[in-house]
C-alpha cells in the first residue's frame, strides 16, 4: 500500500462529494491509501497571480509543509486546488523573495514545504499507479461509451509550471478513459474555459462559453463529458440546462472519479454499459 497525503478542499466536502468519496475508495482498490491532512484550510479557489501576494498563498504552503512532514506526496482531486498548490510550490522553489516572506510569516510551520511532491489524482494514476495497472483492475469495462475529457484551464496552465501534459494537446485524461475501456473523444475545445467564476457578473457570457465546449464535444461524437473540477462541471451543466431541447438529448457531465468508480465496481453502473 502506497501512502499519500490528501488535500480534499472545500468543495469536495460539500457540493462535490462524488469527487471525494470515489477518489478515496478507488485509490484503496488501486493500492493507494489517501490520508487526509489535518487542519487543512481552503486554498482560496484561485492562485493570486502576483509577485507580492503572500497571505493568500499561505494555506497552500501549510498543506505542502504538512505533506513534507509526513514524507508522502500531496494529492488533490480538485483541479482548482491542485493549481493553487502546485503554483505555490513553484513560487516557493524559484522565487527567493516569496519564500523568505513565507518563512517570516509562518516560521517553522512552513518548514520543508518546498520539498513536497505534488500530484493531481490523475497524475497519481498515471505516474504512481500506472494506467496499465489500472486497466488490470477494471471489473466493469465502460465499453462502447464515447467519453469526452474536459480539461478546462487550471489542470494545464500555466504549462511551464503545471507540467501536467502538453498544455495545447494533452492526453492524460484520454489515456485514463482508454484504460477504463471507454473510447476517448478528442475535441478541440477541451482546454478552453468554461466561464469559471464569472457567472456571478456575466451570466450570459459564462453560459456561452460552456455551450461552446458542449457543442464541440457533441460534434465530435461524445456521449458524455468527464470533468475534474466542480466548477467546470457546474458551468457545463448550467450551460446544458440553458440550451433548448429535452434532458434526454443533453450530454451528461460527470466527474472522472465517477467513471473510475463504475469501472472498478464500487459504484452502480449508470454511464457505462
Amino acid at each position: 500500500m502506497v501512502k499519500v497525503s490528501y488535500y480534499p478542499g472545500c468543495t469536495l466536502k460539500n457540493k462535490a462529494k462524488e469527487l471525494d468519496k470515489y477518489a478515496v475508495r478507488c485509490a484503496e482498490i488501486l493500492g493507494v491509501e489517501m490520508e487526509e491532512i489535518e487542519n487543512w484550510q481552503c486554498c482560496g479557489g484561485v492562485f493570486c497571480d502576483s509577485s507580492d501576494e503572500v497571505a493568500t498563498k499561505l494555506s497552500a504552503v501549510r498543506a505542502l509543509a504538512c505533506a513534507a512532514r509526513r514524507k508522502t506526496p500531496l494529492v488533490t482531486v480538485c483541479t482548482a486546488c491542485h493549481n493553487v498548490i502546485k503554483r505555490t510550490l513553484h513560487a516557493l522553489r524559484y522565487d527567493a523573495v516569496f519564500s523568505e516572506r513565507v518563512r517570516n510569516y509562518l516560521g517553522d510551520e512552513a518548514k520543508g514545504a518546498e520539498n513536497a511532491e505534488v500530484y493531481h489524482y490523475l497524475e497519481l494514476l498515471r505516474d504512481v499507479v500506472g494506467f496499465e495497472t489500472l486497466k488490470g483492475k477494471v471489473v466493469n469495462e465502460l465499453k462502447g461509451k464515447r467519453v469526452a475529457a474536459y480539461y478546462g484551464c487550471l489542470f494545464l496552465r500555466p504549462g511551464s509550471v503545471m507540467q501536467t501534459d502538453d498544455a495545447e494537446d494533452p492526453r492524460i485524461m484520454e489515456s485514463f478513459i482508454k484504460s477504463l475501456g471507454a473510447e476517448p473523444v478528442i475535441y478541440p475545445m477541451r482546454n478552453e474555459c468554461c466561464g469559471a467564476y464569472t457567472f456571478f457578473e456575466e451570466k450570459e457570457a459564462a453560459l456561452k462559453k460552456g455551450a461552446a465546449v458542449l457543442k464541440s464535444a457533441e460534434n465530435f461524437g461524445a456521449d458524455l463529458i468527464a470533468a475534474a473540477c466542480p466548477l467546470c462541471r457546474y458551468n457545463l451543466e448550467s450551460s446544458s440546462k440553458s440550451l433548448p431541447g429535452g434532458a434526454e438529448k443533453k450530454l451528461p457531465v460527470v466527474y472522472f472519479t465517477e467513471l473510475l468508480a463504475e469501472a472498478l465496481g464500487v459504484k452502480e453502473a449508470r454511464y457505462g454499459m
Binding site: G9, C10, T11, A16, C42, G45, V46, A80, C81, L231
Partner: peptide
C-alpha cells in the same frame, strides 16, 4: 448547486 470554490474565487 453553486460549488463553494466559485464563491471563494
Amino acid at each position: 448547486e453553486i460549488p463553494g470554490q466559485a464563491l471563494v474565487s
